[in-house]
Design a protein around this nucleic acid. Structure first.
Lengths: 349, 349
DNA sequence: CTGAAAGCGCTTACAG
DNA sequence: CTGAAAGCGCTTACAG
């Protein structure tokens, strides 16, 4: 016999000889349905391949079920954020939520409901809330507050004014502790002249330098920081730092770079000068991005728990949306990944 | 005065002294509204910050406005697919569409409406169509056809049976031509003994090898293929290929790897044996993924137009959804990216 | 356990 | 150019 095709709950209800309310109840696993009717309806749905209209469900029950992953001010999706997104998606899949991906470029002074703001965040109820990734400024966050759109931030990536906002709805990792452990690791290897290379005008790199400084100061070791500002290409920053470092701190035996890309630049110029890593100089990155996968020597680095950050952000946002009070979560720990770019300091050196 | 907060079109209509139909018309830029009313309504909307309910709009007009980017059988989002996704998002943003990102793991023999299939693709009308990325099999594609869900595939990534399906709804790049050009480039540099390293059991790598073969045969040059099967880690495949290659084709002066990761493995083991790239051996990758960014020597490779692929896929899907007849698009061209890993063959060698 | 009916907040012919 | 009314396809008190 020809298979009936049901387009709406009404079709199913008619065939089952019950009301649409009952169909809706079995669709939503509502307990108040007799086992008998439930089975009959379920069978009908099965064989007809009936699929309820998702939009209608959302309008009726008032829940959109979707979280928006908003990547701000990035022209490409770096591997770092890909991993965060993957964590978000894993959580959402498990929770039967959907993740809407979008990007947005704006400046700190743009007036906020702007034309370029993605449509779904401007629209009312298109999304339950937004996961704020990339680089963000207070104007956008204020807008979210104004229109009462719940959001959760990736706390480590906030610029200036955004830092002062309440942090209940932020997920972050312990940037400072990661740098501290990195410096301590180099100390354990026997290094006493450890330099930090970075751009201290950026809050996140500043925190890393602070962790480094804490580790050094608590051991009475000298601080050696090469602070290069205004260079947005980290690899280039790393390259430029090498001559400065060698001149200003020639006694250095180990370098802690502000991030992996910076480390790549440092490595490149070190090698050009015939300084071998790790034989002559130990080198450490930060982040553990996939771009360093095939670097030789394999880079020892501080791994940031990217997928976990995404998962926790989605979880926090879902909680807020569900009305649970947002509570500040403790920062996520980083993990030291020991590969080949750091060596024990030999007495000869 | 206290700012009125309008929650629905009715609130706005009441304040403007018109009907909701009129509000809807100005919201949708319908021409049949007098300039006067339009302005008044617009002003009201402006100052009240009224935002129409997106879900209700979709239910009423029957369009969901969202495309689903489905990444199949990948445990992480590789940089390759990040770029494709970015292209999709760029197109969708411009078209005021939203992209729903999801992942899905399945096998070629799984029965298709499975529990693990993401909810939004199971639901009716949650999405307008799906962009199929990652590795996919016929069973999923058949399911889409069955439930009449429009889809567009990334054509280069289809396995076995999926290859035989009609390709009107596929976007692909010219894999074979890219490999041909790569081999020709090595030829121009004076190389006559060029080897291909890869896994010919995979259709995509097979196509690359075919391009290589065409270039070689048309010049009467010998084919030298190292075909290693069953190794899913390409870098490892590359590593393993080196001793085989040196034994079987010791005359080789240039290697065309099936992809960048394979090239990384080749490079690693070449260097271990003291064979310098490019001085002693030229080496070429394929894809131009971000993981090779910091490789030294910088890898000469064939760039796949990832973002363009994403853009074209989204464009094609939007066209199909809009009822335009799907027409097969010509394959997108690749681009040779010349960096430092290939050198002119000197007579001495 | 079940059904009739109102409601979610828009859009869209249809009339005027 | 504008409005009244039906409709999009569900869900959810409310009654029974």
């Amino acid at each position: 016999m020809a298979q009936k095709v049901f387009k709406t709950v009404h079709d199913v209800a008619r065939a089952a000889g019950v009301s649409v309310a009952t169909i809706s109840r079995v669709l939503n696993q509502h307990p108040n349905v007799s086992a008998k009717t439930r089975e009959r309806v379920l069978a009908l749905i099965q064989q007809s391949g009936f699929r309820p209209n998702a939009i209608a469900r959302r309008l009726a029950n008032g829940r959109t079920g979707s979280l928006c992953f908003l990547l701000s001010n990035r022209d490409i999706i770096h591997s770092f954020h890909s991993r965060v997104l993957k964590g978000v998606e894993d959580y959402c899949q498990q929770q039967h939520r959907q993740v809407i991906f979008t990007t947005f470029d704006y400046g700190p002074d743009d007036a906020m409901p702007t034309e370029t703001l993605p449509r779904m965040v401007r629209e009312y109820r298109a999304i339950d809330g937004v996961l704020v990734a990339g680089t963000n400024y207070p104007n956008l966050l204020h807008y979210f507050t104004e229109v009462e759109l719940p959001y959760v931030m990736f706390g480590n990536n906030l610029v200036t004014g955004a830092l002062a906002l309440p942090r209940k709805n932020a997920v972050c990792f312990d940037e400072q502790a990661g740098a501290r452990e990195a410096a301590e690791f180099l100390f354990e290897l026997g290094h006493r002249h450890i330099a930090f290379v970075g751009d201290l005008s950026q809050p996140w790199y500043m925190r890393r330098q602070q962790g480094y400084r804490e580790a050094m100061e608590s051991r009475g070791l000298p601080i050696a920081t090469i602070d290069i500002r205004g260079e947005t290409d980290c690899a280039e920053l790393g390259r430029r730092s090498v001559p400065l470092l060698l001149r200003q701190h020639p006694e250095t035996t180990a370098i802690l770079a502000q991030d992996d890309e910076t480390a790549c630049g440092v490595l490149e110029n070190l090698e050009k000068l015939g300084i071998r890593v790790p034989a002559d100089m130990s080198l450490m990155g930060y982040d553990d991005i996939s771009e360093i996968r095939y670097l030789r020597p394999a880079l020892t680095t501080v791994r940031v728990p990217k997928a976990t950050i995404g998962w926790k952000m989605a979880e926090a946002l879902a909680g807020i949306v569900a009305g649970k009070p947002a509570k500040p979560a403790p920062p996520l720990p980083t993990e030291l990944v020991i590969r080949d770019s750091c060596a024990r300091l030999t007495p000869a050196a």
